[in-house]
């Protein structure tokens, strides 16, 4: 049995300030979600951008949760960029339904639209 998988969820954002709903399923071959990392094309795209997320109807991040708290700058090593859940905090993967809403911060930094927001889930078997 494989121990770790990084699952990527891609969300297309068409315009500045857009609110995009999305849904997906976590990989059913993995037991838990251990961490999350949100990637946007530019660091400045995180200004005012937010991610609301629920997994198995459990609130993970509430409305208005800023994506800059779910990312890190380029001086971090890749594994340090993940916001990790506590060891005693079980967020089941196992094919859980996840739904969310991303809101672009509307910051005009010359970003070209559309762009793709990537959510990386670190999944784990124990």
């Amino acid at each position: 049995m494989k121990l770790t998988k990084y699952q990527i969820i891609k969300v297309k954002v068409d315009s500045a300030g857009q609110s995009v709903k999305f849904s997906a399923e976590t990989d059913k071959l993995y037991q838990k979600v251990q961490g999350i990392y949100v990637s946007l094309p530019k660091d400045t795209s995180h200004f005012g951008s937010s991610l609301e997320l629920r997994i198995s109807e459990q609130e993970i991040f509430p409305e208005g949760f800023e994506t800059k708290l779910l990312a890190a700058n380029q001086s971090s090593s890749p594994n340090e960029r993940f916001a990790m859940f506590d060891k005693d905090e079980v967020i089941e993967a196992k094919g859980s339904h996840m739904e969310g809403r991303f809101v672009d911060g509307g910051f005009d930094d010359g970003s070209t639209f559309p762009y793709t927001m990537n959510i990386y889930l670190k999944l784990k078997n124990e």
Partner: peptide, 8 residues
């Protein structure tokens, strides 16, 4: 002016 930090 840089929205991202090394650690949150």
């Amino acid at each position: 002016l840089e929205p991202l930090r090394k650690k949150n």
